[in-house]
């Protein structure tokens, strides 16, 4: 995009991304926590002869964190899979109106998700819900991660609805072409220019 005065839409995009990217980073961190925790547990069991209490539960919580802290980030990068059969044949304007309606409807569903997971998180916190394995592990933090994830995703969904109704592309939609190219050219060197679509563009991660 060339330099032009910042519109409200630009500011909206930037702010939603500013919210989602740190959550995405935490989600990424959780995957590595999972890998390290499981590996340490395997090593401990085979060397010291005993698993380390709590690592299994930690991995489960890291999975919840990976999924729900990443859900808004996946939203801003347009990574949630959808079926493009009918809408791709429509003119841009109508396509975006439909997208706006879908994201508005989706937002309603997310509100329902938030209300029910919020209730459950409160209940879990009040009764200090735990799992019992080698160690007593609290469940309630994981339940709150879910609520946080859905709230962040609601913001993404509402922003997408607004942008669509303003006849603008979805969050992350511009990047699709680039991301697609990267998938074609999974080497990051870009030397093997074989398939016509490949242009070796490096997308910054």
């Amino acid at each position: 995009m060339v330099a032009k005065p910042k519109t409200f839409e630009d500011i909206l995009r930037t702010s939603v991304e500013k919210m989602a990217v740190p959550l995405g980073a935490l989600s990424s961190l959780s995957t590595i926590v999972m890998m390290v925790a499981i590996s340490i547990d395997v090593v401990a069991r085979n060397t010291a002869g005993e698993p380390i209490p709590g690592l299994l539960e930690l991995s489960e919580m890291a999975l919840v964190a990976t999924v729900f802290l990443g859900i808004a980030y996946a939203g801003t990068t347009n990574a949630h899979v959808s079926v493009d059969l009918l809408t791709s044949k429509l003119p841009t304007k109508s396509r975006r109106m439909i997208a706006g309606l879908m994201w508005l409807l989706g937002s309603g569903m997310i509100v329902w998700f938030i209300m029910s997971t919020f209730d459950r998180a409160i209940q879990s916190t009040e009764m200090s819900e735990v799992t019992l394995g080698l160690v007593v592990w609290p469940i309630w933090p994981a339940r709150w991660l879910i609520v946080i994830g859905y709230v962040a995703f609601l913001i993404v969904a509402l922003a997408n609805a607004y942008l669509s109704f303003r006849n603008e592309p979805l969050l992350g939609e511009d990047e699709d072409a680039l991301a697609n190219d990267e998938a074609q050219d999974s080497s990051s060197t870009g030397q093997h220019v074989i398939a016509p679509e490949v242009d070796g563009t490096e997308k910054k991660s």
């Binding site: 499981i38 299994l56 999975l63 029910s116 997971t117 209730d119 339940r143 859905y150």
Partner: peptide, 18 residues
């Protein structure tokens, strides 16, 4: 409501799914 809350947690907090 209960189903939404349950699905969100149960489908993502299972060790075998890591």
């Amino acid at each position: 409501g209960s189903t939404l809350a349950t699905a969100s947690y149960e489908e993502t907090s299972t060790f075998s799914l890591t």
